[in-house]
Design a protein around this nucleic acid. Sequence first.
DNA 1: AAAAGCAGCAACCGCTTCGAA
DNA 2: TTTCGAAGCGGTTGCTGCTTT
Length: 284
Amino acid sequence: MGCKSSEKPKPRHRKGLWSPDEDNKLRNHILKHGHGCWSSVPIKAGLQRNGKSCRLRWINYLRPGLKRGMFSKQEETTILTLHHMLGNKWSQISQHLPGRTDNEIKNYWHSYLKKKLAKTEEMVARAKTQYTSSSSDTTDSSPSPLMENVDKSPTNIDLSTPLNYDFTKEAHQSSLPKLLFAEWLSLDHVQGGSFANSGDPVVARNGFDHNSNFQEAIMHGFLSNEGTYAGECQNGLSHGSSASEMFNTQLKFTDHMPENGLINYISGTDVNYNFNMSNDVMYI
DNA sequence: AAAAGCAGCAACCGCTTCGAA
DNA sequence: TTTCGAAGCGGTTGCTGCTTT
């Protein structure tokens, strides 16, 4: 901001892919002088591009420290978790993935993760249908505790019943450890309420607000299907909190975060207990 | 071997936000 | 207070290379 308008005559700007020569010019210029005002960068660097294009090229491709190549499982999990919390806030998500750009994450989401998630949802739907048709044969019309957690209204899933129904379990026998991170719960959850005074599985009552939704359940299934446990953390975090609160918690958490993401603390092989949420909660 | 279809990625476009004048 | 330009962001487009027919 505050750039001199005299610095920008209106040349015809080049579009399309950047040549190596253009990359070099831009890189050299910025490394030498910094970008300052982006609109003046192409002029000073001798490029027939507009400032916006230069900025984008620098941020997404030339900037030092960028990580190229495949996303790791941890990065994937981080994206899923944060996307679930924040929505399409790619720039915010990218802040939690060092070396990755918002554009890269966005592309990865659209080309890969979105489809993967859709697949899982489809699987869940199929499992639901199968269950519904099979249960209608029985005389007992009371809903299964299993299906109580599924659907109904988008905001009505009772997490007081064992959360550890994995929706994809019918297809993949997967037992999820029920893990909670103290860092992810507000002080109220930890200090207030019955947590301090009770030997009960308090987190299930306090750390969790029991208003989950179906999508979260899908998320749970999705992540567990991948052999990660972010779904648990996700559920522990998100109920009853506003997005910004969650994000703040997330920010706080990053102070302790390993370089590569959220779920480094525990791997599936490290902890492989089979908890019941109403009885056994591992509180970390 | 050629054409069609598809997926991934880089870049553009348009809108919003922010700060200076 | 208003206006204007720069920066930032997210959605979308289009090019390129790979796979399938």
